[in-house]
Design a binder for these strands. Structure first.
Length: 494
RNA sequence: UCCUCAGUAGCUCAGUUGGUUAGAGCAACGGACUGUUAAUCCGUGGGUCGCCGGUUCGAGUCCAGCCUGGGGAGCCA
């Protein structure tokens, strides 16, 4: 208030013209005002007050006398409409306000005269931060294909769809930490560079500091890693599970949430070479506790999205996938079906459907089988347990029947396997014999085996592919569109 | 990696049994319009037909190879 009076006095003293006063006032606003985020404008609008907003132009419409600018600052999917009386602004400034340009706008927040929005800003000052050449700028004020936007991944954040997707992605990451923290789990950082190649979860990327043009070789023709950075062959992790188990068998309940790398030549809308995975691991949990946790966890995340990402979800439901909200609600409200692998085989052999891959006890379930169970037979998420030991990993707890293991796969409509987990084999002799049976290098797994030697305990865990979950929660159909910069075979752009 | 479809203007696509100067909508640009909602109306410019060979008098169109992308499958999260 004092400042205002002083300024008024100065103006009187210097006999500023009206024009000077207007310029001065504009400068004053830019210097003194605090920026308001668009999200806040909509959530608690102070009608009649002067506000300062900053953002990027989505569209500009209008005529000689008045222009309407839809401004978005990323805080929400909603744009704030800026109304500018052209007589108040330089003609070149108005001309430079094009789709993609970055602006700071001050003006009065008022209720809108037009249809389509409740509030708008009557601009009194506009500062252009960054022009955007309309000819060169790839994004237009029209729909673009996902393929085109993927090639422009550096700019696609500026679209409604990708804004919504990445806001939701953030919320889900945050909710995951919140869920586990509230339950007393500890976030454990398992290594990204690993010296163990026994994880058996797929092809690995090698990590080396050696000069690839001058590799040292052993007499037998293999590469000599003894002088490499770690003194041995190292890779990027394909899973944090084994290390996670070590943490769980002391801290009780832990989870990992980190990047995971698979050098598989997988070219599908569900695979990435670099993705993020959540792997909880719990001491004293049996397979049933494990299933209960997985179901509760997923439902918590859906509920969190409904409560915190409503507008983005509604946008995606309208523009990307009309069945999204209904499907999320359906998964939230229905108990997941729990059947054993053997029961699943009985259902599949009992159906009259013709299978491309034969259904036979002992064979792994194919995509067509899983889809039938989830999308046709039960029409809800299905958890399948007790798979034949031959088709599952060495660390899974062996059942007394000698044929099956306490594995669990959670199958979702449209996505397929979203969670894979198991109760872990905690009996030293059984684990070791299985490792030897599969001819895995038990020498490299000495640390894993020691947890079974010293105070072993029943425990369980599972892995959730973060991007697969984001796929499910956003209704997007290609996994490359739910991670900012996808890494896939033949693509590491940006 | 396998099967399959596609690649033509900035974007989305059309382009006939191989034929003369390759089209449309949108976008952009110029103009009109006193409150627009992917504004509207009139006009203008814009092309290495993915790349490299081959067949042919003649190839966007046919053939071979390669590259890139979509969908499906496998592997998996």
């Amino acid at each position: 208030m004092n400042i205002n009076l002083e300024i008024q006095n100065n103006v009187d003293l210097l006999e500023f013209s009206d024009e000077h006063f207007i310029i001065f006032t504009r400068l004053f606003f830019f210097i003194m005002m605090k920026r308001t985020k668009v999200k806040e404008l909509f959530s608690s609008p102070q009608l009649g007050s002067d506000v300062l907003v900053k953002g990027w132009v989505r569209t500009k419409r209008g005529n000689k006398n008045i222009v309407f600018i839809a401004l978005n600052d990323g805080s929400t999917i909603n744009n704030i409409q800026v109304v500018a009386d052209t007589s108040l602004f330089d003609e070149n400034l108005i001309k430079d306000i094009t789709t993609g340009a970055s602006l700071a706008v001050t003006g009065k927040l008022v209720s809108s005269q037009g249809q389509g929005q409740n509030i708008e800003i009557n601009a009194s000052a506009i500062e252009l931060y960054g022009k955007c050449d309309a000819v060169a700028y790839p994004l237009q004020k029209k729909g673009h294909s996902m393929e085109f936007l993927r090639e422009n991944a550096h700019l696609r954040f500026r679209t409604n769809t990708f804004g919504a997707v990445f806001r939701i992605r953030h919320s889900m990451a945050f909710a995951i930490h919140k869920y586990f923290n509230d339950k007393g789990f500890f976030y454990l950082h398992t290594p990204i560079i690993t010296g163990s190649d026994a994880e058996g979860a797929g092809e690995m990327f090698h990590v080396t500091a050696m000069d690839m043009m001058k590799l040292p070789y052993n007499d037998d023709g293999t590469v000599d890693f003894s002088n490499d950075f770690f003194g041995k062959q190292t890779n990027l992790t394909v899973s944090g599970q084994l290390e996670g188990e070590l943490g769980a068998l002391a801290l009780g309940e832990i989870y990992t949430f980190g990047p995971t790398f698979r050098a598989e030549n997988s070219n599908t809308p569900r695979h990435l070479a670099e993705f993020w995975m959540i792997e909880p691991e719990m001491a004293f949990y049996d397979i049933t506790d494990n299933m209960d946790l997985a179901e509760d966890f997923v439902k918590y995340l859906i509920r969190y999205a409904f409560e915190n990402c409503r507008e983005d979800l509604e946008f995606l439901n309208k523009m990307i996938d009309n069945g999204l909200l209904e499907r999320l609600k359906f998964v939230l409200e229905n108990k997941f079906v729990r059947i054993t692998y053997t029961e699943a085989i009985d259902i599949l052999t009992g159906s009259s459907k013709e299978w491309e891959y034969p259904v036979k006890w002992g064979n792994d379930l194919q995509a067509e089988h899983e889809r039938y169970l989830v999308e046709v037979y039960f029409r809800k998420p299905v958890i399948i347990t007790d798979y034949p030991r031959e088709i599952k990993a060495f660390y899974m707890k062996q059942n007394d029947d000698g044929k099956t293991v306490k594995a669990m796969d959670v199958l979702f409509p449209g996505i397929g396997e979203i969670i894979g987990g198991s109760q872990r084999e905690e009996i030293y002799d059984k684990l070791l014999s299985r490792i030897r049976e599969l001819k895995l290098p038990d020498k490299d797994l000495w640390w894993y085996l020691e947890t079974r030697k010293f105070g072993t305990a029943p425990h369980s865990g599972f892995g959730l592919g973060f991007e697969r979950f984001v796929l499910f929660i956003t209704g997007m159909s290609n996994i490359r569109d739910v991670i900012p910069f996808p890494r896939t075979p033949k693509n590491a752009e940006f």
